[in-house]
Simulated scan of single mutants.
Amino acid sequence: MAAGARQAGMAPVGFKGVAGIAALTGLAIGALLFAAGYVWFALSLSRVEPRLTVRAEGIVVFTGGSDRVQEAAELLARGQAKRMLITGVNRGTRSSVLARLLPVSHKLFDCCVDLGYQAQDTIGNARETREWARTRNISHSLIVVTSNYHMPRALAELSAELPDMTLHPFPVVSDHVNVDGWASDAGVIRLVGGEYLKYLGALARITLRQNENSPDLTGLRPEPASP
Rank of each mutant, 00 (worst) to 15 (best):
F62H: 05
G124E: 10
S226P: 14
G64H: 06
A11K: 14
N178K: 15
L43E: 10
M84N: 07
Y196S: 05
G26L: 13
Q80M: 12
A73P: 08
F62D: 00
P224A: 06
R68G: 05
V61H: 04
T122G: 08
V39K: 04
C111R: 11
I21Q: 10
M151S: 09
A42E: 02
S174D: 14
S226V: 13
R130A: 10
V39H: 01
V18S: 01
A5W: 09
A35Y: 04
R91H: 07
D114R: 06
D164Y: 08
A2K: 14
T218A: 09
M84R: 08
L197V: 15
L108T: 08
Q70P: 02
A119L: 12
C112V: 01
M84D: 03
G194H: 00
A22Y: 00
K107T: 14
G124Q: 12
P171H: 01
R100G: 07
H168M: 13
G4A: 09
A225M: 11
G4M: 06
L98I: 15
V18F: 02
E212M: 10
A133S: 14
Y199H: 14
L167D: 10
H106T: 11
S105H: 10
K16W: 02
G181C: 09
R134L: 12
G9W: 00
V97Y: 13
A19M: 06
V54F: 13
P103L: 02
P152Y: 11
G64Y: 03
S159L: 02
W132S: 06
I189H: 09
G79W: 14
L220D: 10
I59K: 06
S95N: 02
L197T: 11
H106L: 12
I123S: 12
A31T: 08
E131G: 09
Y117A: 05
P50Q: 02
T207C: 00
D180P: 09
A119D: 13
L200C: 13
G26F: 04
R209W: 00
T63W: 04
A5Y: 07
L98E: 07
R100A: 14
A156F: 11
A81C: 09
K198R: 14
A28D: 00
L191A: 03
D114Q: 04
I189P: 03
Q80H: 15
E212F: 04
V60E: 05
I59Y: 07
Q210T: 09
N125E: 03
V192Q: 00
P163Q: 03
L101K: 15
T122D: 06
V192M: 01
V145T: 01
E161S: 03
F34D: 01
D114G: 02
Y38M: 06
L158H: 08
P227Q: 13
D121I: 06
G92R: 14
E57I: 12
V145R: 01
P12K: 03
W182P: 14
L158M: 09
S226W: 07
A77H: 12
G79Y: 14
Y38I: 00
A8H: 09
V179K: 11
K82S: 15
A42N: 08
E195S: 02
V188P: 08
V18C: 01
L162T: 09
A133P: 05
A81G: 11
S139E: 05
P103T: 05
V179L: 11
T207I: 00
R55H: 15
E161T: 00
V97L: 15
L102R: 11
R136Y: 04
I189G: 01
P227V: 14
A72T: 10
V104F: 08
S66C: 03
K82P: 03
R205T: 03
R134D: 07
D121A: 06
A156V: 15
E223C: 12
G193E: 00
